[in-house]
Design a binder for these strands. Structure first.
Length: 189
DNA sequence: TTATCGATGGTA
DNA sequence: ACCATCGATAAA
């Protein structure tokens, strides 16, 4: 079955513990649909943000206007602007009412198989896929969505480390909630 | 190779 | 005032 015919991952995929979803997202393929063309990229690096108790998570202050979507139903897109110039995309996890999201940090563009392009870092990834604040709330599980995720059967190895850029989060900064495909050239840092 | 810095704006 | 960043530049 060709990638473009694969169905989007269902709501049930996202409606599980955030850390498990994060690990299983490695190797999955982002499909970004425009009017005429579509872009595909394989996820190689993610971070889990666990909700209100996680002092590195935007959900740590409760359901503020920005972070409320993290408390809502799973399978939706959470986009925020960082440092005034870069967008970051996250997939909402856990059941409705419980906060949790996975930050997509890096992917490998599949549009030119012979010259795979590294999309290393959440800002670069969003720029390449043209994802911005307007896409916040998008349903990742609907067939017609501008962005969906599909499973083509790839099962990469998984390595874990501390999350990037969350030194302020005390003990939570030390948790190994960043997951990546070891040795993959598109992984950041 | 590592270190530092400026750009730029939403968020609380 | 503080960032879930990036690219350029400088130091070594």
């Amino acid at each position: 079955m060709k990638v473009e015919e694969l169905p989007p991952l269902p709501r049930s995929f996202y409606e599980r513990p955030t850390t498990l979803v994060a690990r299983e997202l490695l190797g999955k393929v982002l499909v970004r649909r425009f009017e005429q063309v579509e872009l595909r990229a394989r996820i190689v690096e993610v971070e889990a943000y666990l909700g209100e108790r996680d002092q590195a998570s935007h959900a740590r202050r409760g359901p503020t206007p920005r972070a409320a979507i993290m408390f809502g139903p799973p399978g939706r897109l959470y986009v925020y602007l960082i440092y005034g110039m870069h967008h970051c995309m996250n997939f909402v996890c856990e059941t409705d009412g419980v906060a949790g999201a996975v930050l997509i940090r890096a992917a490998a563009a599949l549009d030119d198989e012979t010259h795979p392009r590294a999309l290393s870092g959440p800002g670069k990834l969003c720029a390449h896929l043209a994802i911005a604040l307007a896409h916040k709330g998008l349903d990742l599980t609907a067939r017609e969505s501008e962005l969906v995720v599909v499973d083509d059967g790839t099962r990469p190895r998984i390595a874990a480390s501390r999350r990037v850029g969350v030194e302020y989060a005390g003990a939570w900064a030390r948790r190994r909630l960043r997951f990546y495909v070891p040795g993959h050239p598109s992984v950041s840092r």
